[in-house]
Amino acid sequence: MKNLIRFIINNDFFLTFLLIQIFCFTLLFSYNPYHRSYFFNSSNVLSGIIQEKHSNITEYFYLKHVNDSLIAENERLRNQIEKYRREEIPPILSSGFSYIAAKVVGISVNKIDNYITINKGKNHGVYNEMGVISSNGLVGIVISVSSNYSTILPLINPQTKISVKIKKNNYFGSLSWIKGEANYGLVTEIPGYVQFEEGDEIVTSGFSAIFPENIPVGNIVSSEIDPTTRFHKIKIRFNTDFYNLHYVYLIKNKNFEEHNQIISELEKKND
């Protein structure tokens, strides 16, 4: 005991260092973006306000690009309206989804755990697990909300798993990110006998309450068959360019509660 006390007195600097490291490691390994750990998150007030101020200044540099993408989107929407007009489809069957536009105030691309911060929060009707898309395609899922800011778990984070399908033949699989390669993802769980070609479109499957069906995700770049499982490993390129993302849309599902209720009831029955 005496020796122990002497050791502690003689090595108090090392022990202080050790205690701080234990503190850091506890933070690091107990952190889970799905827990609403409010403080250590880019949606907290301090970093939210600073990042928004910064983005207010820098957004002028991107105006031209943003304009271009808005024009392209306008054109696409106009075409869609024309199509509906011509085909005289009765007032669109209420799909149950509506959209909230938001500005990206913080984004990381080169890290391993990447996140996006946006300038809309609880006060604007944002809630956890909302789907997020850009004008080009899928972006991610909301994981943490404060009153005026939210953090998004984007496609380019190893924790993201999203159910997708090949648009052409409706075979569905699971999408994850290829670590370190921004803008590329990996689709697995598609059986080896399924036929497709390079450039085929990958879209959301619509099995969850988060995303509607048929939101574009990316295009097939290459594929190989895993020799052990005989399943395809398909490399895709995301439609959303995360290096150049300034505005996003949050998807609000009016039937979110109902959908979740059914699923939780099912899970209860199975237990």
Partner: peptide, 8 residues
């Protein structure tokens, strides 16, 4: 860390 959402 707070800005990067990477506590610790």
């Amino acid at each position: 860390d707070i800005f990067n959402s990477t506590p610790g």
